[in-house]
């Protein structure tokens, strides 16, 4: 059964006009998120994953500019909305959480006041009701003693508790879409496990969709339904999570999966199959496929032309002239 489409990003282009030239941070990105789906957007620094999320929120500041594409949310193009209309959508229908909770929390207001403010802004309730809801939310995200914590300032809380407070604020208006931009990256692993568990739990309870942005492939495997792998502002591979991990076709995805140490790998203290070279500078993009200088399979055509994102298997898109086939290699 086809699920209802919640967000459709079509050919999004966000460029930065800097003194040194134009940086195509997001360069023709398209993806779809269905209701209640978790889509992972994965890539290394400079791949444009955070700019994609800021574009969806329409929060790109100069010298950055959305120069093309459509962001269709519940059937309407967000790029055509007025600033006033966007303000209503942000926080109530689309909410965002970040790596550093202090970018979202105001240090001079108590946690409770800030969450209450979000509720009062977007919902038609009185203060008493908003306070009740706030305390319920703090409890829901696992903050112990929520009545007391209501009156605490962000600096009085630990990193994990602040992250929970930020999540409480983000979900306070039951958003349809939560954008999580490296939200657990700065946390310790046992705290990260708590927060991920909380996000999964809330996603099931509230039925919200999540755009899960991360550099960590292991988290993608745990959290997402489908995955878009990005490199230098473009999606290079896009499929359901199982296909990406079990049958990666792009040499970059394949290389990354091979090179990360995993608890499952049997060879330790041996060289990892590393990807050579590094991500190219945004001012000096190679001609053709941007991955070609690092790609062991690159041929002449890869150095001349940028491949299209094409379906190589049902629902599995790959931007490559010579897709890897793991299944064949094994047999």
């Amino acid at each position: 059964m086809e699920k209802e489409v919640l967000l459709e990003v079509k050919d999004l282009r966000t460029y930065f006009y800097t003194e040194d030239g134009v940086v195509r941070a997001v360069d023709g990105v398209s993806f779809t998120i269905h209701k209640g789906e978790v889509l992972g957007l994965v890539g290394e620094s400079g791949c444009g994953k955070s700019v994609t999320s800021l574009s969806i929120m329409r929060l790109v500041d100069a010298p950055g500019k959305i120069v093309g594409g459509q962001i269709i949310f519940k059937g309407e193009d967000l790029l055509k909305k007025s600033e006033e209309e966007m303000r209503k959508i942000r926080g109530s229908e689309i909410a965002m959480i970040f790596q550093e909770p202090m970018t979202a929390l105001n240090p001079v207001y108590t946690i409770g006041d800030q969450i209450m403010e979000a509720i009062l802004t977007h919902q038609d309730v009185n203060e008493e009701e908003a306070k009740k809801q706030t305390i319920k939310l703090l409890d829901l995200v696992g903050i112990p003693d929520p009545k007391k914590r209501f009156n605490e300032y962000p600096h009085e809380m630990s990193g994990g508790m602040r992250q929970r407070a930020m999540i409480a604020m983000a979900i306070s208006c039951n958003p349809d879409l939560l954008i999580s931009d490296e939200a657990t990256t700065a946390l310790d692993v046992t705290i990260q496990a708590q927060i991920l568990e909380l996000m999964k739990d809330l996603q099931r309870k509230i039925g919200m969709a999540i755009l899960f942005i991360t550099h960590d492939l292991a988290l993608v495997a745990e959290m997402t339904d489908s995955v878009a792998v990005t490199y230098t502002g473009k999606i290079v591979e896009y499929s359901d999570v199982r296909s990406i991990f079990k049958n990666p076709h792009h040499p970059y995805t394949y290389g990354l999966l091979e090179s990360i140490p995993s608890l499952l790998s049997e060879k330790t203290k041996e060289p990892l199959p590393a990807i050579e070279g590094m991500v190219p500078s945004p001012y000096r993009m190679p001609k053709g496929c941007h991955f070609n200088p690092r790609c062991p399979f690159a041929t002449d055509i890869c150095r001349k032309e940028m491949p299209e994102l094409k379906e190589v298997e049902p629902n599995h898109l790959v931007r490559c002239f010579h897709p890897v086939n793991v299944k064949e290699e094994v047999s």
Binding site: P144, S158, G160, M161, D188, V189, T190, I191, Q192, A193, Q194, L196, E197, D216, L217, A218, L219, V220, A221, E222, V241, R242, F245, K246, L257, I260, S262, L263, L264
Partner: peptide
């Protein structure tokens, strides 16, 4: 035990029994 069980594994087929610790350090 809790620390090791919290490590995410890059394989969507592996579903771990996770020990979720309560509270903070």
């Amino acid at each position: 035990q809790a620390l090791l069980s919290a490590i995410p594994i890059p394989d969507p087929d592996v579903k771990k029994e996770r020990i979720i610790l309560q509270g903070d350090i």
